[in-house]
Design a protein around this nucleic acid. Structure first.
Lengths: 162, 162
DNA sequence: AGACTTTAGTTGCCTTGTCAAGTGAGTCGT
DNA sequence: ACGACTCACTTGACAAGGCAACTAAAGTCT
């Protein structure tokens, strides 16, 4: 956070960039620390379990999970191996497409998400929402949506990155 | 980004949180893709090299580098091994403290940063600053600074996480 | 000065992630 | 309807990161 300019960015942009990079370093790390200490899972794994829990059929195709979580196939495949060993998920062939596999959340898995969620959300509130006015929360939504649209899977960037 | 509420957060906070998580997933990933494709280094490694380059003595104690980059000692130690193999950095004992090691950027290393920076910054501009008004850039700075203060190394959270 | 603690870093082992190759089911062209 | 191609994974070998144990220098206490 020095007053050092970044070549190609003006002063405001330099500050914003350093501050944004700092946040993207530390916020996920803080979430990881809490989750792995209290629940033995990473933030990435929590996201996957929570995504399964939200989908009211309690399951998702691995492909969709990978896309949503920005993970590769092997990474998801191995994560689901771990989940199966824990009894949180089972693999089921997709009835609509013989190639696809669905990851199905078990009752155990659903319980795990339910147990892990409160402290996770409490930390989210502490680190983010307690720091911001409700106006700033709105601004945050607007800004992060715009950046996500550019950087996310459908962004102009993603297509150039093949 | 469904209209699905997160228990413990109101509607606006839920949207903000999902959007923020999405951004923190995809933005660093996009930077990683560009850097590793074009320069063979990760965003994390770029950050370390750039930090060394900015420090006008072209060097830093490993401890400070670790703290700044939110990395562990072993991680930094091994990263510097790789940098030494590439000829970008050399290790030098710190004259002021016999325990400490300084990572010193070589001319090669400085050149590497100089070569890598323009495309990296261009992508930063494309993904973030081109998407935002200058007012939003200011808002982004304010918001990310607040979150960083809470989640970063000096935040109330960090001290509780020992 | 000598023992104890703290600090800074390295090393080894294990887990996790990545990349490339392989498998098997669907799709498309003729 | 048969071969070629694509898609959705899985597997295996390797690289990178995390944790715990170790080394060595600095500080601290008496």
């Amino acid at each position: 956070m020095e007053p050092k300019g970044i070549p190609g960015l003006n002063a405001e942009e330099s500050t914003a960039w350093m501050s944004l990079m700092a946040m993207t370093m530390w916020l996920p790390a803080a979430l990881d620390v809490q989750l792995s200490r209290d629940e033995g899972i990473s933030n990435f794994e929590y996201g996957a379990l929570a995504a399964l829990a939200q989908n009211e059929c309690r399951s998702m195709r691995i492909k969709d999970l990978a896309r949503m979580a920005n993970g590769t196939f092997p990474r998801l495949s191995k994560m689901i191996d771990r989940f199966e060993k824990q009894g949180w998920v089972i693999r089921r062939p997709d009835p609509d497409d013989g190639r696809a596999t669905r990851a199905v959340l078990t009752a155990e898995g659903l319980r795990k998400v339910a147990v892990a969620t409160p402290a996770h959300i409490a930390l989210a509130r502490e680190l983010v929402f307690d720091q911001l006015t409700s106006e700033q929360v709105e601004q945050l939504t607007t800004i992060t949506q715009k950046v996500f649209r550019a950087a996310g899977p459908d962004g102009a960037c993603a297509s150039r990155m093949t």
